[in-house]
Design a protein around this nucleic acid. Structure first.
Lengths: 228, 228
DNA sequence: CAGTGGTCTAGACCACGAT
DNA sequence: TCGTGGTCTAGACCACTGG
């Protein structure tokens, strides 16, 4: 067995038998290096593989930690983030990074209005930032949106306050890496793998309600999709 | 700018301007190392990041190549792999690794029958293996399945020959790494990131038709999901 | 058989986090 | 300030691929 595999197995075992619990910090890279009479390169090879596997994660310059359970998410249902997270035993939080109006240029293929709202938020579970989202919608349709409580469910605001009826949505899902600015917002190193979701939601008239880009940490989410 | 980022940018640029086209082999790690007066560790840092990004991929001990376009896949529709691939300009292929009957033990929570078929296949686009799947179904429901052409659409066989009506399906999607045996089948290094999809399909009676596990290379697929 | 990627050693310096 | 992870150097040997 290769050395990095031994290190991997060692950590896997300690997690499996509970000596390392969810959220715990792993020994430092140098401590592991000494324990295995090895080098940091090899230790980091093992850590990187465990990270790809989703067993551990790193926060920039703070260290390596045992990954919590994944949030099970059904994108096609209207259950909101707070409810979903709480049902699964997490303490959710949403931090609004920014809301601004901008001219409809880059997204003009999507919206008919000439001014858009752009909202950026970070969502956390038990204090761990796991998702960044950018929400784009028509400013004329959602007049004075900035005065609404934007750290809650935007969907609820849209349906209750603006009387939008969300009829259907389309998600495009791919695996890629966090853009640098998103990585910073999520306290991750640049280049961290993620699940990217582009969501478009429509009214029954066919009009586009919002166009959203979400970046989920790859180890923080499990999507459940029902077809037909 | 960091050295590995310079190397990354160099390769990105060469891909963007077409000097490196889809499927092309990159210069060897040692050639890149010399070109940047650096070391293989740093070169490999850059290559690993480009791989995570999906721009390049490696085949075990053969080298690094420019990633082809992603297959756009709508899991909830019944369009089969061949048709989908051809519509998008790929030449698809399916290789059946094995078909065997086994006792219903590990999956007994899913099927009522006491014997199951287990089929393992690898699917390729333009000669590149991109997906491994294991199909499990009830042997009594699909009598003599091994005499059917298993390198085509199993769905078509089930509907046409066995008169199954597929009513709905549930997919559970997560990001993880290829298990070692799957990595070998796909000519990848162990630890390669992937999209794992567990699909269950049901008849309108609610009976489970098949229980499938799919591993897609993370850079080979883009899923499109329609909700409501 | 030559060249490639896969694994590994034994160090180093720096920026940032915790305290 | 000290310890951490992030980046980087300068090598080495081995297993496998391809010619």
């Amino acid at each position: 067995m290769l050395l990095y595999q031994k290190i991997q197995k060692y950590i896997q075992t300690h997690i499996a038998n509970g000596e390392l619990a969810i959220g715990d910090k792993l020994p430092s890279e140098r401590a592991l290096q000494e324990h295995f009479n090895s080098t940091r390169i090899t230790v980091r090879e093992a850590l990187n593989r465990l990270e790809a596997e989703g067993l551990i994660y790193s926060q920039k310059r703070r260290g390596w930690f045992v990954t919590p359970n994944k949030l099970k998410w059904r994108p096609a249902t209207k259950v909101n983030f707070y409810q979903l997270a709480q049902e699964q035993g997490f303490t959710p939080n949403t931090h609004v990074l920014s809301i601004e109006k901008q001219e409809n240029v880059s997204l003009n293929q999507h919206f008919s209005g000439d001014t858009l709202y752009k909202i950026e938020r970070v969502r956390s579970l038990d204090g761990r930032p796991i998702m960044f989202e950018q929400i784009n919608c028509d400013a004329s349709r959602f007049d004075d949106l900035e005065s609404q409580p934007l750290n809650g469910s935007i969907t609820t605001i849209m349906t209750s306050h603006y009387h939008v009826d969300i009829n259907n949505e389309e998600c495009v899902i791919s695996v890629t890496v966090l853009p640098d600015d998103v990585a910073k917002s999520l306290e991750k190193n640049s280049g961290a793998p993620c699940l990217k979701v582009i969501r478009q939601r429509f009214e029954s008239s066919g009009i586009l309600i919002d166009y959203n880009i979400e970046y989920w940490l790859h180890d923080a989410i499990e999507m459940i999709v029902i077809g037909q």
